[in-house]
Deep mutational scan, measured.
Amino acid sequence: CHSECLGNCSQPDDPTKCVACRNFYLDGRCVETCPPPYYHFQDWRCVNFSFCQDLHHKCKNSRRQGCHQYVIHNNKCIPECPSGYTMNSSNLLCTPCLGPCPKVCHLLEGEKTIDSVTSAQELRGCTVINGSLIINIRGGNNLAAELEANLGLIEEISGYLKIRRSYALVSLSFFRKLRLIRGETLEIGNYSFYALDNQNLRQLWDWSKHNLTITQGKLFFHYNPKLCLSEIHKMEEVSGTKGRQERNDIALKTNGDQASCENELLKFSYIRTSFDKILLRWEPYWPPDFRDLLGFMLFYKEAPYQNVTEFDGQDACGSNSWTVVDIDPPLRSNDPKSQNHPGWLMRGLKPWTQYAIFVKTLVTFSDERRTYGAKSDIIYVQTDATNPSVPLDPISVSNSSSQIILKWKPPSDPNGNITHYLVFWERQAEDSELFELDYCLKGLKLPSRTWSPPFESEDSQKHNQSEYEDSAGECCSCPKTDSQILKELEESSFRKTFEDYLHNVVFVPRKT
């Protein structure tokens, strides 16, 4: 048989008469490798580009789960590009990614509803959504962080984005990388972005840091009482949809009607710091009717980097990364020049730590249904340095008659930039024990000054392991946590139920 035959053949030295091919099969003959313009397919066939392209389009058009959109890589027609490569849609070739590779997620039936953290986790790592997304989240724990972890990498949506009755959302900033909504599939009414009845939605994105392009379709905003109209108009300008909307697409009466839409800028007039305090004062603000001013709200939190936005980490279910302080308005003076500047002394802060701070007014709604208010920009203030805590785990070892090696770990709280350490030492008198000992005694162990690591005695271990207080009263049991108490109650309830079950099964009433 021919060298490319495997198993047997019907005619000697003829690659077209093989029972099976050793390498690849091409047009009725066995070959060692697939010549151009053919590609290896499933490690035994040679196919042309049209064959591989037909497989790709067949799966793409069917949208069946589990099928493969075949691509070409290293002269092979394979189910998908290997790690580190992405497909070129024009020629199906796998090309190296520039940075992290995109991950295209194809949605069944063309859309997916995100109504819980669990459903959001199914899209973790996706960068391109081939379909439409509907966000409908009523509640949950730590929602802002969970949504950002699972949806934060999405850069492109081919269909539309719909935010509907998501009472738990305060902001859409968890879509931190969303840059493009194509609108290839539109919501009824030709809408590519749809926001309806979101009672706590206050911000779409921080438009000073976020760009969003909507290729096709219109915007729809109705019944978002805490979303200011200025935020919607800003989205029109940034996304390129200005002029597409009709009169009733953006409701003037049901958007922002319960919001404090600040239209003035508060400026800080005085800032002073110490290692654990920050004193702030800002310019006074009074609405047209000074009785509408209820006070100020001061927001602050630790910020290692200057990239904080107002609604980071917030949701309507209680999660809030900001510390909020309510401040009463100052006494009002008739003389504008003698107006008191409101302020606040922030206490209990960490030394040498940068804080993000902003302040906003708290006002009631005027009778004319106009909203007044003022808010400052987010500023960054760093507390002063102070003395560091003591170095940890000092170790001293003498390696000769004239040297001592000293080692330690950095302090747990540096409280500033540590530039150097101060080492103090003092000579001590020799131990009298060394002169009084009889060095001729056998088995004498000389006193040693070398360091030995501390260890816990058996008594201390027994005390720590004991669940009861000892007789001397030195140790006591740790208080039980809520989960331990709940577990004990469940076990007790189970024992009672099981005992009742045994009584009912074992003891049967005697027939009379």
Rank of each mutant, 00 (worst) to 15 (best):
Q354E: 08
R291A: 02
T383K: 00
P410R: 11
A168S: 00
D393V: 12
P284K: 15
G189Y: 15
D393C: 15
T127D: 06
L186S: 10
T309H: 11
F193W: 09
T241Q: 06
F311S: 13
D377G: 12
A149P: 08
L147S: 03
S269C: 14
S173D: 12
F311P: 04
L392D: 14
F290S: 13
F174Y: 10
L219V: 08
S321L: 07
S208H: 06
N320L: 08
E264C: 14
M346P: 01
R281K: 10
Q306R: 13
S333C: 07
F221K: 02
P287D: 02
F358P: 00
I379R: 11
H210R: 05
V381F: 02
F174G: 03
F268W: 09
D377S: 12
Y285K: 03
N340F: 11
C317L: 03
L107C: 03
S208F: 10
W352N: 10
Q245H: 04
N141S: 12
P411A: 04
C228Y: 03
Y300P: 00
I327C: 14
R179F: 12
I181T: 01
E310W: 10
Q199H: 11
G159N: 03
L266R: 01
R179T: 13
N340H: 07
G343F: 08
R164F: 05
A303P: 02
S158Y: 07
E231V: 04
S338N: 06
S398N: 02
N248K: 06
I395H: 13
H106L: 10
F220G: 11
F174C: 15
L298V: 03
R370S: 05
Y380S: 09
Q199D: 12
N198V: 14
S333E: 14
H106D: 14
F290N: 03
V170W: 14
S230W: 03
F174A: 13
T386W: 13
I129K: 01
L294S: 04
A356L: 01
A356T: 05
Q121K: 01
I357T: 14
E237M: 14
N198W: 00
P388A: 02
H233F: 07
L161S: 01
L392N: 05
N263G: 15
W344T: 14
L123P: 01
A316H: 00
S192Y: 00
T323K: 10
N141V: 12
T273R: 15
S269T: 09
Q403M: 08
V381R: 14
R332W: 09
R179C: 14
T364Q: 08
V397K: 15
L293Y: 02
T353I: 14
G189A: 08
Q306N: 02
T185M: 06
L180R: 08
E146W: 10
L107H: 14
R291H: 01
E246N: 15
